[in-house]
Amino acid sequence: MARLIWLGAMAALFFSSTFVLNRAMSLEGGHWVWSASLRYAFMLPILLAWTLASGGPKALREAFGLFGRNPVFWTLAGSIGFGVFYAGITLAAAFSPGWVVATTWQSTILATPLVLALLGRKVPRKGLAFTGLIFCGIVLVNLEQARGATDLGRLWGVAAVLVAALAYPLGNQLVWEARHGGGKRIPRIDQPALDAGRTPTLLLTIGSIPFWLILVAVTHPPAPSQGQVIQTALVALFAGVIATSLFLRARSRARTAYELAATDATQSLEVVFSLLGETLLLAGPWPGLMGVAGITLAVVGLVLYVCRQV
């Protein structure tokens, strides 16, 4: 259990680069469609090279074979877990201040039990209590950051993040369900390669390609700037490849609904890491008493996940 929390925490550290770099890109006027789609355009060659370097041509053939046997599943899971998720995050940056995006995104830790219930999995009550504790801590951190903000009417941004917060755990859980049993509508993909992290990340990225092509064709965004291209490349490496692979690896090792909820709850640390990143890189304010109290609640919640087994 402790190893799952550790992997999830490391993933949260790299995931936090998304909020910091998206904040920087929004200040420079970059279009949200390019911030989203370019990330996965960069991820694809990185993941292909990583798979080839780690497992050789055999690993690539195995990955493409897995996709070829279940193309509809991977396209659906990739479009939801990567496409809808990240389109919502970058769209929100065009409508809402960064603190609104960061606060609302933490609803994903509450969306996880909902996704588990929708897919017929048992939702542990103790896990829900700890998740609620973490969420309260995150709210306190972001309420402090929201002091002095006057623009509270960006409901489109809030709605986009809420959709993203549901789409991300849903896409991830579809992969977990396929790996650990499948169902009437979910194929059983009992392949150890999915436990590596990089393989499901690659397959979900490939599956999201139709979504991005359609989105670009529909929106016709203006050409991205050089700075936006560079920053999306960094997001692709840190959040898209490293963080996602760590996170999916942690989820693949979870064996119960409780462990899945605990792993997903580590995403709460993204706000802590994002706060530190914005403070150091974008001259954001340091947390006060309310912020410290929120961080403490989040850490206590994670410790309880580790100490209390079901």
Score class of each variant (00 low, 15 high):
Leu162Ala: 01
Val303His: 09
Ser245Ala: 15
Gly157Glu: 05
Gly240Val: 06
Gly81Asn: 07
Gly291Ser: 04
Ser79His: 08
Gly288His: 03
Ala159Thr: 11
Gly171Leu: 07
Leu119Ala: 02
Gly98Glu: 10
Gly83Ile: 04
Gly240His: 06
Leu304Gly: 00
Ser17His: 03
Arg308Glu: 06
Cys136Pro: 00
Thr256Gly: 03
Leu128Trp: 01
Asp195Lys: 11
Val235Thr: 08
Ile89Ser: 04
Trp50Asp: 08
Leu281Met: 13
Leu162Thr: 08
Ile80Arg: 07
Ala193Ile: 04
Thr296Leu: 14
Val229Trp: 13
Ser96Ile: 06
Thr201Asn: 13
Ser268Phe: 02
Leu215Asn: 02
Ala59Asn: 05
Arg251Thr: 13
Ala63Thr: 06
Gly227Lys: 10
Val115Thr: 03
Thr279Leu: 07
Leu275Gly: 15
Ala178Phe: 01
Leu304Pro: 00
Ile189Arg: 09
Phe73Asp: 05
Ser96Glu: 09
Leu213Asp: 03
Trp74His: 05
Phe15Tyr: 15
Met290Ile: 13
Gly227Trp: 05
Trp286Gln: 08
Pro187Tyr: 06
Lys122His: 10
Gly157Arg: 08
Phe273Arg: 07
Leu174Ala: 02
Lys122Pro: 00
Thr296Phe: 13
Ala111Cys: 14
Glu270Gln: 13
Ser35Thr: 12
Trp74Gln: 04
Thr112Val: 14
Phe73Val: 07
Tyr258Met: 08
Val123Gln: 09
Arg147His: 12
Leu140Lys: 04
Leu119Phe: 15
Leu302Val: 04
Ile109Gln: 10
Met290Tyr: 07
Leu60Asn: 02
Arg253Ser: 10
Phe64Val: 08
Val101Asp: 07
Leu4Asp: 03
Leu213Asn: 03
Ala117Asn: 09
Ser16Asn: 09
Leu246Glu: 12
